[in-house]
Lab assay of single mutants.
Amino acid sequence: YETDHQDYCEVCQQGGEIILCDTCPRAYHMVCLDPDMEKAPEGKWSCPHCEKE
C-alpha cells in the first residue's frame, strides 16, 4: 500500500530502516534521533519536530 511518508531519514537523508512519525510525513533512523533510540517505539510515536509543536 502507498503511504505519504518520506522514504528517507529527515536527519541524514538516507534510506534504510526508518521509523515513521504518526503525526507528520517525516521518517527517521533510530540512531539519528537525539537521544537515539535503542528499539522501535510501540504504539503511536511523534517525531521531535511534532513533540515541539
Rank of each mutant, 00 (worst) to 15 (best):
C32I: 00
C50Y: 01
D4G: 11
P48E: 07
P41Y: 12
E2H: 15
C21A: 00
E2Y: 15
V11C: 13
C21N: 00
C24T: 01
Y1E: 15
D7R: 11
C12L: 00
V11K: 14
E38S: 05
C9W: 01
G16Y: 05
P25Q: 10
E38A: 05
P35R: 12
H5V: 15
I19E: 09
Q13E: 10
I18H: 03
P25Y: 08
T3R: 12
G43R: 09
Y28E: 02
K39V: 13
D36Q: 10
K39H: 05
Y28G: 06
E51C: 06
E53D: 02
D34F: 04
A27I: 03
H5C: 09
L20Y: 07
E42M: 09
P41I: 12
Y1M: 15
A40R: 07
P25T: 06
C32N: 00
P48N: 01
D4T: 07
E10F: 11
E53L: 08
G43N: 09
G15P: 08
E38K: 05
I18T: 15
C50S: 06
C32V: 02
K52E: 14
D22L: 04
C21E: 00
E17Q: 08
M30E: 13
C12T: 03
C21Q: 02
D36A: 09
H49P: 10
A40Q: 06
V11P: 05
Y8M: 11
D7F: 02
L33T: 14
E2Q: 15
C32M: 01
V11F: 15
G15L: 10
Y28W: 13
P48I: 04
A27G: 07
E17D: 08
E17S: 10
C47F: 02
A27V: 09
M30R: 05
R26T: 06
S46F: 14
A40K: 10
D7E: 12
E42R: 11
D36R: 10
E2A: 07
E38H: 09
A27Q: 03
T3E: 13
T3D: 11
K44P: 13
C32L: 01
E2L: 15
Q6Y: 05
A27D: 02
E51W: 04
K39M: 13
E53W: 13
D7I: 03
Q13R: 13
H49K: 06
A40H: 15
G16C: 04
V31H: 13
D34C: 12
D36E: 14
E10N: 07
H29E: 00
T23L: 08
P41T: 08
P25I: 10
Y8S: 13
V11A: 09
I18L: 06
A40G: 07
E53F: 10
V11S: 09
D36V: 10
A40E: 08
D22H: 02
I18E: 12
C24I: 00
D7W: 04
P41G: 14
C12V: 00
P48M: 13
Q14G: 11
P35D: 06
H49T: 07
C21K: 01
E17M: 07
L20K: 05
I19Y: 02
P35L: 06
H29A: 00
Q13P: 01
W45F: 07
P48T: 08
M37G: 06
D36C: 06
G16W: 05
G15Y: 02
G43V: 03
E51Y: 06
P48D: 07
E42L: 09
D34I: 02
P41D: 12
G16Q: 12
C9V: 00
L20Q: 11
C32G: 00
E42G: 08
K52N: 11
Y1G: 15
K39C: 03
D7H: 02
P35K: 03
C50W: 02
E53S: 11
G16S: 13
C9N: 04
Y8K: 11
K39D: 12
Q14N: 03
C50A: 05
K52Q: 08
D7S: 12
C50R: 02
I19S: 07
C12M: 02
D22R: 05
A40S: 08
D4K: 15
W45S: 13
D34M: 06
I18P: 03
L20G: 14
W45V: 14
Q6C: 06
V31S: 12
H29V: 00
K44I: 03
D7T: 13
E10S: 12
E17I: 06
E42V: 13
H29S: 02
H49S: 06
E2P: 15
G15E: 07
P35S: 14
D7G: 11
L33A: 14
A27N: 07
T23K: 06
E17H: 08
E2T: 15
W45H: 08
D36N: 12
E51S: 08
P25C: 12
Q14L: 03
E42T: 13
M37F: 15
H5K: 10
M30P: 05
D36G: 09
C47Y: 01
G43M: 07
K39N: 05
E2V: 14
I18V: 07
E10T: 09
E2D: 12
R26C: 02
P25S: 13
P48Y: 09
I18W: 06
H29L: 00
E10G: 13
I18F: 14
D22S: 05
W45T: 13
E42W: 02
Y28L: 09
Q13N: 15
E42Y: 07
T23W: 04
K39E: 09
E2N: 15
H49Q: 07
C47W: 00
C21P: 00
S46E: 10
E2K: 13
Q13M: 14
K52F: 03
T23F: 09
A40I: 15
C12D: 00
Y1C: 14
K39I: 08
M30C: 14
C12E: 01
I19H: 15
S46Y: 11
Q14F: 13
Y8W: 08
V11I: 10
E10L: 11
I19T: 08
D34H: 09
H5R: 14
M30Q: 04
W45I: 12
Y8I: 09
C32E: 02
C21F: 00
Q13I: 06
M37H: 06
C21R: 01
G43I: 03
E53P: 14
T3A: 03
D22A: 12
K44A: 11
D22E: 11
E2M: 15
Y28K: 05
Q13L: 09
P48W: 02
R26G: 08
D36W: 03
Y28R: 05
K44Y: 04
T3S: 14
E51V: 06
D22G: 11
V31Q: 09
P35V: 10
C50V: 02
I18A: 08
A40N: 03
T3C: 14
E38M: 01
K52P: 09
V31M: 03
K44D: 13
G43Q: 09
Q13F: 10
P48A: 11
M37S: 13
V31C: 14
D34K: 04
G16I: 09
H49R: 10
E42A: 07
G43E: 14
Y28C: 02
H5N: 14
C24S: 01
C32A: 01
E10R: 11
G16P: 03
P25G: 10
E42H: 03
M37C: 15
C24Q: 00
E17N: 14
K44R: 12
G16L: 11
K39L: 08
K44N: 03
K44F: 10
P35M: 10
W45M: 14
P35E: 04
K39P: 09
E53M: 02
D7Y: 11
C32P: 01
Y8E: 08
S46H: 13
C12F: 02
A40P: 06
Y1R: 12
G16T: 15
E17G: 07
L33W: 12
